[in-house]
Amino acid sequence: MAGLIGIRGLALTFTRDGTQTKVLDGLDLDIASGEFLAIVGASGVGKSTLLRVIAGLVRPSEGTVTVSPPEPGRRSVALVFQDARLLPWRRILDNVAFGLEKLKLPRAERKRRAQAALARVGLADLAGRWPFQLSGGQRQRVALARALAVEPHVLLMDEPFSALDALTREALQDELVRLCRAAGQTVLFVTHDIEEAVYLADRVVVLAGAPGSIRATHTLDAPHPRDRTAPALQETAQRIRADLTLTDRVAG
């Protein structure tokens, strides 16, 4: 499978008030087409920063990030944030169409694609509502639809479900599996929830240390839909937990 994202020797240093903080160091990572890759790590280890670098919002201090160039009418990557981050002055359909407005598509095509994306997350009926009229879970689905609408090579998700209650979170996890598996969508999913990572991903990368780097990689080949209580998942979760506590001890 062709690599959609290639990261080589990535390091990132923030400079603030003259002091430099190295957040990421010596990171190598490849994401293959169709893969569902999860990144887990403690708070502050640099998970969001890594996504920002991949999305082109922050320039790396060292190393290279190569992202496959998009075809016309698509984007290489699209980001889903922890908060839904909808634009409150746009109706739901117009929020979903936001990214499409940059892609030089005819208006009718934009509308069709926004409607299709909204339908994929099951919210076609809410097209005309305002964001304030939606629940937290619905808002996060709209954010997902907004990202899917631009048909990204890689969908980047930064703890997208962590602000939701357990029931809604599980429902959205199942929905994400259904949507992405069916379409062969490549996903890079950041989370601090180990159970979530092993339930969703083909591969889990453990990010740890200060500055953050890759501490371990685990592969999961159980077919989807998975059983959350399956021993294989539990076992991998245990090993990830061990990776994290081990690095804590090393770091402390």
Partner: peptide, 28 residues
């Protein structure tokens, strides 16, 4: 600033784009 980051993430990076897509509506 989060909304400006959103505009950034979807490719609206020039000053006029950011003004029209985010800054003016948000400040309205």
């Amino acid at each position: 600033r989060d909304l400006l980051e959103l505009a950034d993430a979807f490719g609206f990076r020039s000053a006029p784009e950011r003004l029209i897509k985010v800054v003016w509506p948000a400040a309205m």
